[in-house]
Write a protein that binds this DNA or RNA. Structure first.
Lengths: 159, 159
DNA sequence: TGAAGATAGATGTTATAACACGTATATTGA
DNA sequence: TCAATATACGTGTTATAACATCTATCTTCA
């Protein structure tokens, strides 16, 4: 029986190895999920990466976070956190201040407008997540989360 | 017990839902795996997407594939397949011809140089895949592949 | 104390992604 | 048969990613 992924990619030959099929399955699933999140966020004028930043900053609270701390908490590696935050600052969703004793640090905090945007997004995003993955049920979701964590053990961290 | 992903992202609060944690787990795992593949391919001067295209075209054989067929077989959605193939053609790894009865189609085929490059990559990439995911073993890999396929059922296809 | 190195961040530049629109060929149906 | 539509692909443009390099501040230690 050809695999589900094979059919999705219109591929005639089976995969060379289970490892390879798993690699492509992860990439495919991430692309599909990310695409639907991007579509859902589009009406609000932000990208999944920007949404991720805003959630990180909401989690950090009033203290805020410096640039590198934000960058290291993001799901995907971003090589240019400065201009990512520039754009969010220009939209008024975050604010930056060089207000620590160590003058090298620039603290970024989510603004009232950023919190308001996240507030408007919380419900639709939760519904989206449920619609996308809810059918798996708690048991399978927990297994999936565990297996993915185990999968990440095999490679060096994103550094 | 805080989840593994929580620790990786330096996050203090638990995730809002299993669905959300699963979403982020998939994205995180894909980013980590993609990054290591990109690093491995860098010495050869191609990106993961280009590698993917070359594999698709090798699979298609002498017949080749038209632009949209290539695009639809890629793991991740690419909105500009023309210039992606332009770059591969400029590197001499693929060749294009408008040689079908229907003059709208442009057939793309992998060149001898493209095949040679893939040949050099086959072994190191297989080793990389094994190093990244081999420790899971066949049983867990099969489960992971199945769960990811099931996860993709919840959302509309990438169209 | 002050030069060397480390750290945090900004900036310049090129390549690619993303989106809208344009062109050529083929198909359909009045 | 020929105008309308569909299909396959290309092009123009802007935004962002990716990479290298630069500046400012702080730390370390001879």
């Amino acid at each position: 029986m050809p695999s589900r992924l094979q059919a999705e990619l219109g591929q005639t030959k089976p995969f060379a190895s289970l490892e390879h099929e798993a690699m492509l399955s992860v990439a495919r699933t991430a692309a599909v999920l990310d695409h639907s999140v991007a579509e859902a966020l589009k009406p609000y004028g932000i990208t999944p990466t920007q949404y991720n930043v805003l959630r990180v900053l909401r989690g950090a609270g009033k203290e805020g976070l410096c640039r590198n701390a934000v960058r290291d908490r993001l799901v995907a590696r971003v090589p240019d956190a400065t201009r990512l935050l520039d754009r969010l600052a220009q939209s008024g969703l975050v604010a930056r201040d060089r207000d620590t004793p160590d003058r090298r640090f620039v603290t970024t905090r989510i603004t009232r407008a950023g919190l308001a945007l996240l507030g408007r997004l919380d419900e639709p995003m939760t519904r989206l997540h449920t619609r996308q993955l809810g059918h798996l049920g708690p048991g399978k979701l927990a297994t999936l989360i565990d297996l993915l964590a185990e999968a990440r053990e095999g490679v060096a961290p994103v550094e």
